[in-house]
Computed example of a mutant assay.
Amino acid sequence: MFSPYYAWANRSQPADANDYCALNVAIYSPGNKRWTMTERGGKWIHRDQHTFQIGPSALHWDDNCLTINIAERAIPFGQKVTGTIKVYPEQLFQFTTPLDDAEKHRWGPIAPSARVEVSMQHPALRWQGHAYFDSNEGDEAISVPFTEWDWSRAAMKDGSTAVIYDVRQKSGVERLIAMRFKPDGSVEPFEAPARQALKKTGWRIQRHMRTDANTRATTSQLLEDTPFYARSILQSTLLGEKVTSMHETLNVPRLVATSTQLMLPWRMPRVPKMFS
């Protein structure tokens, strides 16, 4: 979705997305922060019904577990990022919904609530906890219909996961998706509260969060602060419950700006021989 190489290739003629694949790994552990998003061409890609291979890394689905084997190098200093992540869904969902009026972009949570086991060799980290697994797909560039969006997900007391997609389109029409994914496999829409502005990021990205009336959302941790995208952990109130939310903001005009496109290769190199 953020590949500058794919964007450049599409200027002349439709490009094959299989030639522009990457595994993004972000580790935020204090003292062990790592970022990897090395893009690889089609000769490094293999996929079948159960496996998606991207160079030396791979995702494999086996019965009730998604295993992610990571063998990458961090940007910008080339440290090893190796290890295994196992994701065990508590319930699988087949829910999808369009994000735009033309229905060319779709989102759906595959496992909105899951258990994760992380075993990293480089850096040396081990932990278990709660996980979330979803999918975004599109038939055109996200720059065509969208201006910006805010997305958040929060684990509720009853074991369900509440997701809010707050989308602003270039047409001026807003789309608001507020869904609760329950442990029994059911999906229930809910009325999202009013939008409130959050503190701008260091790159002056304006973020928003929908939180219950007469309450304020606060940022516990700003995980990613880039010219076009921010990822945060927020504390807020939703449906009468105090919740911790993973929150993301995407500013599309910032993403497609020439300055951003020229900076992206520093975070997303396309050097398969060096990193394989």
Rank of each mutant, 00 (worst) to 15 (best):
W61P: 06
E191M: 02
S57G: 08
R34F: 02
Y28G: 11
W127H: 12
A257S: 12
L222Q: 12
E117C: 09
A213K: 08
D150K: 00
W44Y: 15
A111Q: 02
K273P: 02
V81E: 02
E90R: 14
Y132G: 01
P89D: 05
S160A: 13
A178K: 01
Y20A: 11
F77T: 10
T226L: 15
A217R: 05
K182D: 04
L262R: 15
L239A: 04
A217W: 06
R180A: 01
R207S: 13
Q94R: 14
T96D: 05
T226C: 08
P253E: 06
T67N: 07
M120I: 11
Q169T: 10
T147E: 14
S259P: 01
R207M: 12
R47I: 01
P193W: 02
P4I: 04
Q79F: 05
S276I: 00
L238C: 05
G185R: 07
T260L: 03
L176M: 02
V118M: 07
A58Y: 07
M37C: 14
D19V: 11
G185S: 09
M1R: 08
K182Q: 07
L255G: 03
H208T: 11
H208E: 05
K43I: 10
R106C: 04
I45V: 13
G159H: 04
Q79S: 05
A197V: 15
I70M: 10
V144L: 10
I233S: 12
T244F: 06
F190M: 09
F228C: 06
E224I: 08
D63C: 08
K104I: 00
T260N: 08
L66R: 08
D48A: 01
I70F: 05
P269M: 10
G83L: 02
A141V: 00
L92V: 12
R34D: 00
N214A: 15
Y165V: 03
A74V: 00
Y28W: 11
I233W: 10
T211C: 14
K199T: 15
Q169I: 03
R267L: 15
K157N: 15
P272Q: 03
F181Y: 15
W151C: 00
E174Q: 13
Y28P: 00
A26K: 10
L234H: 03
Q91N: 09
Y88Q: 09
T36V: 04
P183G: 12
A22S: 14
I85N: 13
H208N: 08
V173A: 13
Y88F: 15
Q49S: 12
R195A: 07
P109T: 06
F95D: 05
A102H: 08
V87H: 04
A154S: 14
